[in-house]
Write a protein that binds this DNA or RNA. Structure first.
Lengths: 152, 152
DNA sequence: TATTGTTATACTCTATAACTATA
DNA sequence: TATAGTTATAGAGTATAACAATA
């Protein structure tokens, strides 16, 4: 008697035990899964994860310069230029030349940007609620975030 | 009296509370951090995360065809070609034409590949042990993996 | 007809160097 | 000299389409 029971066809599965126990590997798979969900949900809004985080950070820190926002999100300032440019072209973000430092651009949301973000935040909250439910509740979410913190 | 105490210079930090509570965002930062560590540790072995997982999977499932290994790791078979080709050129992997299906290549590690992987596994175990210690022990690691499973 | 490995190709994300205008 | 924003560019990683050989 080889195993307890294997009723289904089952083909012949691969031995994946060694990879399955790797923290980095499992972390990557979970992150890809969550981001795929994000892309599916935000397809209608044409908004990528990085763009959403930029809008949120500008809304919560109006008037900061590009370098500050970029650095806080781990985005190189060279790559941040294109990202902000796209948001500006869509009328969501304004680059206002700074009064005291004429090298810097102060970032603000436009009226349209604030309305758009309000909608995006609602969509995101619904997605996040679903994730938290899958995790088993708010406490489970907090335990996950605490564990992730130790890896960062 | 504005706040309880803020002795250090502190510049003026950004408000990041909204992004900090996003599961996907924290997941991505943690994954990037772990992968950066991987790259640093495996620089001397010239081995990327995907290549390491391929070697492990071939070692644990010798004789399987490319498509099977690629699919198990979520790698498109078109992209898998280049990856395996690199490992073959380094003398770590063999592509043996399958006896029963002449379309397929059966994958095996070479002698050199097995020796190399033994070393890589040791290096990886050391890295993993350090991660587990940071998490707070094996139980904490298992709790993390269980939570990540629910997101995948 | 379907599958295996392959090539070609394109798109995103990320990283570095170098320029300008200001400080 | 150093910093802010910018441009150009190159390298990964990933995605699809199409082909030849074989099933």
């Amino acid at each position: 008697m080889p195993t307890v029971a294997s009723p289904s066809p089952a083909e012949d599965a691969l031995e994946t035990g060694a990879t399955a126990s790797i923290v980095g590997y499992r972390l990557r798979r979970a992150q890809l899964s969550v981001f795929q969900k994000f892309h599916a949900v935000f397809e209608e809004l044409k908004l990528r994860p990085a763009e959403y985080s930029v809008l949120v950070l500008i809304a919560d820190n109006p008037g900061r310069k590009q370098t500050e926002i970029a650095e806080a999100l781990g985005i190189k300032r060279a790559n941040f230029v294109t990202l902000v440019h796209g948001l500006e072209e869509r009328g969501l973000v304004e680059r206002v030349p700074s009064a005291n430092d004429r090298r810097a651009n102060a970032l603000h949301l436009t009226r349209a940007g604030e309305a758009f973000l309000a909608h995006a935040r609602a969509v995101h909250t619904a997605m996040e609620d679903e994730l938290v439910a899958r995790l088993g509740g708010a406490q489970a979410r907090d335990r996950l975030l605490a564990l992730l913190d130790r890896l960062t």
